[in-house]
């Protein structure tokens, strides 16, 4: 019977990829309990603190447009530390990693298309409004309707 379920396969993988740092303690055959060593928790925490300091420090410089990318990069490194270690993704099932990383693809899709479009029609919104007769008319037309409200 060559039928092996994905479930069993996953269980097997999990046994094999169980990370080496000790503390398995009880019940080896139920290998889903993998306590993180304290030194690892603490070093991740201090790395996060240092990166927080770094991002505050870099904000004191004027980096122009690079600033946002710099701070986003640092934030992403921090987020990666949290996800990989605190959230245990490094030792988790591949499926869970796919799930969360996959969601980022959809976030990128959502933000990408929306921002691309917003950037595209922006020129239609912010064209030379001073010289465009249509807009001047509309502003003139809009002001009286708003003004009585303000004076009321």
């Amino acid at each position: 019977m060559a039928q092996t379920t994905a479930h069993n396969e996953q269980a097997h993988n999990h046994h094999d990829t169980g990370h080496g740092h000790g503390g398995h303690g009880h019940g080896d055959h139920h290998g889903f309990s993998h306590p993180m060593p304290i030194w690892m928790l603490l070093s991740v925490f201090f790395a996060l603190l240092v990166l927080t300091g770094l991002t505050v420090y870099q904000s004191t410089f004027d980096l122009g447009n690079a600033e946002i990318w710099m701070s986003l990069t640092i934030a992403t490194v921090k987020a990666a530390l949290v996800i990989l270690f605190f959230m245990h993704l490094l030792w988790d099932k591949p499926l869970n990693a796919i799930v969360i990383l996959g969601s980022l693809i959809f976030v990128a899709l959502f933000l990408g298309f929306t921002l691309m479009d917003a950037e595209g029609y922006r020129e239609n919104l912010l064209y030379d409004s001073v010289n465009d007769p249509r807009v001047t008319q509309q502003v003139d037309a809009a002001t009286p309707t708003a003004a009585p409200a303000a004076l009321k």
Partner: peptide, 23 residues
């Protein structure tokens, strides 16, 4: 619950520089 809590932290990691540290 830990996973959830780390995600809340995760979000804040982005919120902090994006909101507070614009120069």
């Amino acid at each position: 619950v830990g996973l959830y809590w780390h995600l809340v932290d995760f979000i804040w990691i982005y919120l902090f520089p994006l909101l507070y540290l614009i120069t």
